[in-house]
Amino acid sequence: MTVLSNRVLEMEESVTLAAGARAKALKAEGRDILSLTLGEPDFVTPKNIQDKAIEAITNGSASFYTVASGLPELKAAINTYMENFYGYSVAPNQVVAATGAKFILYAFFASVINPGDEVIIPTPYWVSYADQIKMNEGVPVFVKATEENHFKVTAQQLEEARTDKTKVVLLNSPSNPTGMIYEAEELEAIGNWAVEHDILILADDIYGRLVYNGAKFTPISSLSESIRKQTIVVNGVAKAYAMTGWRVGFAVGNPEIIGAMSKIIGQTTSNLTTVAQYAAIEAFTGPQDTVETMRQAFEERLNTIYPLLNEVPGFEVVKPQGAFYLFPNVTKAMEMKGYTDVTAFTTAILEEVGVALVTGAGFGAPENVRLSYATDLDTLKEAVRRLHVFMEK
């Protein structure tokens, strides 16, 4: 008897979590490892947010269940966030909160996908999209975003991929792993295409506050009423507020879909941890200066490390506009070192010079590697120095 389900047997392990775990294991053995794997700010959660969480614990508010979709006060805070950064309001029945944006994505797919439904995913893509779709018996359809077009797809490419089974198109801007941002005109063309063909837009906006060097993040849901009605926005506190460990994600959009997601949450995790909800309320409604402080730090790291990485033999990098990743093409580097597989290449870098990167294979980009610059400049500079050493051996 086969004990495990086909669903699990067919599922890929998250390459980002696997790379992070391998780096931690080697560190535990006493190895000198510089890990640039996980998308996690190296800042601690701002004190005003910590204080609100502590207050909720001490006054007893955090001790009890809430409704599965989130506290009314949290939904009101998310509405404030939407008004401030998206330019429009949302009603309580258009908002759901859950244990991280990752689970919000899963709840969305579980709510809208029937067996055989197709979801268009531009590549490179965040590692969990495809497997979450497969777990819900959907079919991921990949459309390649080329480096020549700054890792962005066009409405024409999406049209070429569309079939009568296409139900969702997924957009992640700024992108993980490329850091590229869609311009308003590009989004408008994609949004109007989706409206014309009655295709849902899943907008993963988790990095929307982290943009650099004058770049602008445009939410696709803000472009028109018709596009907004077609769009489910996914966001959270993890990246902009340095709250990865709090696991707070949310979605806003069509009340019917939001209601279905709430039902999924009610039968799986139940409510998001109550104390984290009170922390998120403060994040969304409290002072926003710490977000800008972190954004400026990431911008400085990007501008410092990007030219240095471009000098590593065989590494070719398109400068990102947002998020906190660099995604160099290492085709020439692999040729120089005699590798044909990017995962083997990243493993060799880890074992030989102690720099942990993430293979691009899990992002649908077997010519690339991903490194996070969400760590201090000294670590980043030393990591690049070691990459030079590796390539020049």
Rank of each mutant, 00 (worst) to 15 (best):
V3D: 09
V3F: 13
V3C: 10
L4F: 11
R7S: 07
L9G: 06
E10G: 15
M11Q: 08
E12H: 14
T16E: 15
L17P: 01
G20Q: 08
A21L: 07
E29P: 09
L36R: 00
L36V: 02
L38G: 00
L38M: 08
P41V: 05
D42F: 09
V44W: 14
A56M: 13
T58V: 15
G60W: 06
A62F: 13
F64W: 11
F64N: 13
T66A: 08
G70T: 08
P72Q: 10
K75L: 08
K75S: 08
T80E: 14
T80C: 09
E83H: 09
N84R: 10
F85G: 01
G87L: 09
S89P: 04
V95A: 02
V96G: 04
G100P: 02
F103R: 03
F108L: 12
I113Y: 05
P122F: 01
T123N: 10
K134T: 06
G138R: 12
G138Y: 01
V141A: 07
E147T: 15
E148H: 07
F151N: 04
V153P: 00
T154S: 10
Q157C: 06
L158D: 04
R162F: 07
K165D: 13
K165W: 04
T166S: 06
T166M: 05
V168Y: 04
L171H: 01
N172W: 00
P174G: 03
S175C: 08
P177C: 04
G179A: 01
E186H: 08
G191Y: 01
N192H: 07
W193D: 02
V195K: 07
I199V: 09
I199M: 03
L200P: 06
D204I: 03
L210Q: 15
Y212L: 11
Y212K: 14
N213H: 15
F217T: 13
F217L: 12
P219T: 03
I220L: 05
I220G: 01
T231Q: 06
I232W: 03
V233N: 00
K239L: 11
A240I: 04
Y241E: 05
V248C: 04
G253L: 03
N254K: 06
I264A: 01
I264D: 01
S270V: 02
S270E: 08
L272M: 12
Y278C: 14
I281Q: 12
T285M: 07
G286E: 15
T290E: 05
M294L: 10
Q296T: 08
A297F: 03
R301A: 10
L302P: 01
N303W: 08
N303S: 12
T304M: 03
I305W: 00
Y306L: 14
L309W: 02
N310S: 13
N310G: 10
V312P: 11
V317M: 11
G322L: 07
L326V: 14
P328L: 08
N329S: 09
K337N: 02
T343C: 09
T343M: 10
F345R: 00
T347H: 14
A348P: 04
I349K: 00
L350Y: 10
E352F: 13
G354V: 13
V358P: 02
G364P: 02
P366C: 12
E367G: 12
R370I: 07
S372E: 13
T379M: 07
T379W: 02
E382L: 15
V389C: 05
E392A: 10
E392L: 12
E392K: 11
